[in-house]
Design a protein around this nucleic acid. Structure first.
Lengths: 120, 120
DNA sequence: TCCTTTGCTACGATATTCGTAGCACTGGAA
DNA sequence: TTCCAGTGCTACGAATATCGTAGCAAAGGA
């Protein structure tokens, strides 16, 4: 029986990578700290997308990783499959909305850095 | 000359992992998608912390990784060193504030899942 | 039947993260 | 002056995660 690396899905209420308390916020931070998770949520903001469209939107992320992330997000009730493709659930949408201010923040951040840093 | 793996810091205005547009939001998503980044910002919310205190707060994250993350965050003007230890900069604090609703969101998420899922 | 599209798996190559050990420095006690 | 204890941090091999590419099976449509 070969041991296979399986990444646990950070469900709230359970231990997650980097925290044993089971606090929901820790599960969320673990989940969102995985590569492409935030990006996927970001890209699905605008509406459902089929697998390959989502892959393109995410600059050609490897399908294996995309599939893994989608599996996690589905398992956690943040993404679901519809006949339009992958879509945010109600909960997923509410999380996506928390991300919206991030865009404005990033612009200010960029502007602030442009003022204080030399161009390269 | 040995080639060493060096992860680029996702500065807004430059290409980042997963995006060639240089859009600030993409740099932000890349940055925040790295393990421990969100957690560090989260833990520094409450005030400055010295290296080892922060390491403890982050459930014993490997010092190499913590140091790498702190280097990125310092480089990006989100964290700075003070005589109290590591602290969020003004920009870092404004990012940290975006994270605050995440706690409430995670609680609702957990509550919603508890209602719809069987306990294990 | 023959394309095209789609969702997804396989798998070796790379990159990142982990875990542990430990070094150099600082500020007290003793 | 010597001896901790605490600090920030580096080294480095092991363990995991991610990447990149190829490709398969199924579902249409021509």
């Amino acid at each position: 029986m070969k041991k296979i690396a399986t990444t646990k899905i950070p469900s709230p209420g359970r231990k997650v990578r980097g925290s044993t308390t089971g606090r929901p916020i820790m599960a969320a931070l673990d989940l969102l700290g995985r590569r492409w998770t935030l990006r996927i949520l970001w890209e699905l903001r605008g509406g459902p997308m089929v697998f390959r469209a989502l892959q393109d939107a995410c600059d050609g992320v490897a399908p294996s990783v995309l599939n893994t992330r989608l599996g996690e997000l589905r398992e956690l009730d943040l993404v679901e499959t519809t006949d339009e493709g992958y879509a945010l659930t109600t909960q997923g949408r509410s999380l996506g909305e928390l991300l919206l201010p991030l865009d404005a923040w990033a612009r200010r951040w960029a502007a602030g850095r442009a003022r204080t840093r030399d161009p390269e």
